[in-house]
Computed example of a mutant assay.
Amino acid sequence: MKDTASGTGQDYPVEVAPYKSDSRYRRVHLRGRGWMPLEREEFEPRVHQAFPGLDLSDPSKVHWDDHPWEWPPWHPGEA
């Protein structure tokens, strides 16, 4: 069984799980590497490390379950 957040059945190189306000991370699936929690600042560098040249604005390559490009607020010093 494929572990997908979206349940679309499509094989996107990058999938971003639903937004959760109780975490500063979003779960991100990179094809061939699995799921990982990423902060906003980690997202683009990690995706480009895995898929150099991938267009992050291409919906056929990057699937957001909801709230595209949004991360929960977080302030330094919070756990």
Rank of each mutant, 00 (worst) to 15 (best):
M1D: 11
M1S: 14
K2A: 15
D3Q: 14
D3G: 12
T4I: 12
G7K: 11
G7P: 14
G7I: 11
T8A: 10
T8N: 13
G9M: 12
Q10I: 13
Q10R: 15
D11M: 10
Y12H: 12
V14P: 09
E15P: 06
E15L: 04
E15K: 00
V16G: 05
V16H: 00
A17G: 12
P18G: 14
K20F: 14
S21N: 14
S21R: 14
D22H: 11
S23V: 08
R24S: 10
Y25L: 06
Y25H: 14
R26A: 01
R27W: 15
R27F: 12
R27T: 08
V28E: 01
V28C: 00
V28T: 13
H29A: 13
H29T: 12
L30S: 08
G32P: 07
G32H: 12
R33I: 12
R33G: 01
R33D: 08
R33H: 15
R33A: 15
R33N: 09
R33W: 13
M36L: 14
P37Y: 03
P37I: 03
L38G: 08
R40V: 01
R40I: 02
E41P: 05
E42S: 05
F43V: 00
P45V: 11
V47L: 00
H48Y: 09
Q49C: 09
A50P: 05
P52Q: 08
L54G: 06
L54H: 03
L54P: 07
L54M: 05
D55P: 06
D55T: 03
L56V: 03
L56I: 01
L56G: 02
D58R: 03
D58G: 04
S60L: 02
S60W: 01
K61L: 15
V62Y: 03
H63S: 09
H63W: 09
W64N: 05
W64Y: 04
D65Q: 11
D65N: 08
D65W: 02
D65E: 14
D65L: 13
D66Q: 03
D66Y: 02
H67Y: 13
P68T: 02
W69Y: 04
W69G: 00
E70S: 03
E70T: 07
W71A: 02
W71C: 00
P72E: 02
P73K: 06
P73R: 05
W74H: 11
W74F: 04
H75V: 06
P76E: 06
G77A: 01
G77M: 01
E78L: 07
